[in-house]
């Protein structure tokens, strides 16, 4: 819990300081209207890349050298710690089936602290966070914000993350094991995420002409996919962009 509070405090303080430092740079170097604090965000991104160089990438490399069974176990555990939050947020969004699924998976796999998936169920609960709940309640997404240690997001998604950290039902259990699990869930999730997406993240980091801009673009598209829940009945932002482009091409 202490560790989690420390990361939250550092993130918020670092973010405010970096964004404050850039507030006078004006819109000259702003490259996306969704990102009004771009220069500050770029500074934080550079900091995060430094942390990745020194800590996350080497640790994730170590994680990848573990036997497959160990990697699966740790990934399962990281996913398991998110089930209480998924259950709460699914309920708040009216997705009761997903909430039930998350609760069942949490209770059954709790016998092994989530390291082993005892359900043997192909139908895994879909991760739902408070940022998605806020979007469901039509809260505006706000500006793009790069947080130290945490990474990319919008004001809404970071606010949701903060609420998820505070309201995670694991913390309500009030017993030492739950507290330890909750305290380590952030770093464990970070390592498993980095390890499971090792090549994809390295591709962005080392093969991009502008890693910051690519990260921002990927974040928005991926998040849109999460918020749409796979619904293809309405055109996505990408569909609209291609439609406008092809019509524009024809009119020339």
């Amino acid at each position: 819990m202490m560790l989690q509070r420390f990361i939250i405090t550092i993130s918020v303080v670092g973010c405010v300081a970096a964004l404050g430092a850039c507030s006078s740079t004006g819109p000259l170097t702003e490259t996306d209207p969704r990102d009004p604090y771009e220069q500050g965000n770029r500074n934080i991104f550079a900091f995060n890349m430094g942390v990745d160089d020194v800590i996350l990438e080497p640790v994730a490399r170590g994680y990848r050298s573990l036997p497959d069974a160990a990697q699966h176990g740790i990934t399962n555990h990281a996913r398991w710690t998110s089930y209480p939050s998924t259950a709460v947020n699914s309920t708040l969004q009216g997705k009761f089936e997903n909430a039930g699924l998350a609760t069942i998976h949490f209770l059954i796999n709790g016998l092994t602290l989530g390291f082993v998936d005892l359900t043997e169920d192909d139908d895994d609960p879909v991760r739902e966070d408070f940022g998605q709940t806020l979007a469901h309640w039509s809260t505006p997404q706000g500006p793009y914000v790069m947080m130290p240690f945490i990474g990319p997001g919008t004001a809404r998604s970071h606010g949701g993350w903060l609420l998820d950290s505070v309201t995670n039902p694991l913390g309500w259990l009030g017993e030492p094991t739950a507290a330890t699990v909750q305290a380590t869930s952030g770093p464990v999730s970070a390592v498993t995420f980095r390890g499971n997406n090792f090549d994809t993240i390295n591709d962005v980091k080392y093969n991009s002409a502008d890693p910051y801009a690519r990260t921002r673009s990927v974040y928005y598209q991926y998040r849109e996919g999460q918020l749409r829940d796979g619904d293809t009945s309405e055109p996505s932002a990408a569909d609209d962009a291609f439609d406008a482009f092809l019509n524009d091409e024809d009119s020339q």
Partner: peptide
């Protein structure tokens, strides 16, 4: 275009290239 898990390769390229030009 090829879109994988809702991430369009071409939209990503366009946004990255536009950012470099604007920067």
């Amino acid at each position: 275009d090829i879109e994988i898990e809702n991430i369009s390769m071409l939209i990503t390229q366009q946004q990255e290239h536009t950012a470099i030009i604007n920067q």
